[in-house]
Amino acid sequence: MSQTEATEIGAPRSPRTFGSSGRSNFELYSWLFMRVSGLVLVFLVLGHLFIMNILDGGVQRINFAFVAGRWSSPFWQVWDLVMLWLAQLHGGNGLRVIINDYAERDTTRLWLKAALYASMVLILVTGTLVIFTFDPNIG
């Protein structure tokens, strides 16, 4: 950098512009996503736990017929689908941060994240498929 080139100092809290440096605001959006998805998940997950684990006998009453009864309603299908996607992305992003914090070697981080992303794809695809293709008369 030549000495005649002025250093530009933006106003405090003005959005950062990274230009050609190859960086992005990904971590900002990830931070925001954790809070927004977390707020929605508080209602979806605590509602799910209350119904499944506490109400009316809890897990003792859960079986195939119980699941068939619930998923005959589009309301619970949508509830479970939204909960699946938000929880998986929220938890997956949390584990990504944990890997970044504790795995110090580049190759360790690479492999842990590869395993993480593979498991996220597996769970999202399997879970979505099960909700959409559920057949109460399969037996």
């Binding site: 195939f64 769970i123 399997t126 099960v130 293709t133 559920f134 399969i138």
Partner: peptide, 14 residues
Amino acid sequence: VLDTALVRVSPEAY
């Protein structure tokens, strides 16, 4: 999610 996916296998498996 994987244990719930067994509803696609059979009621007995689930």
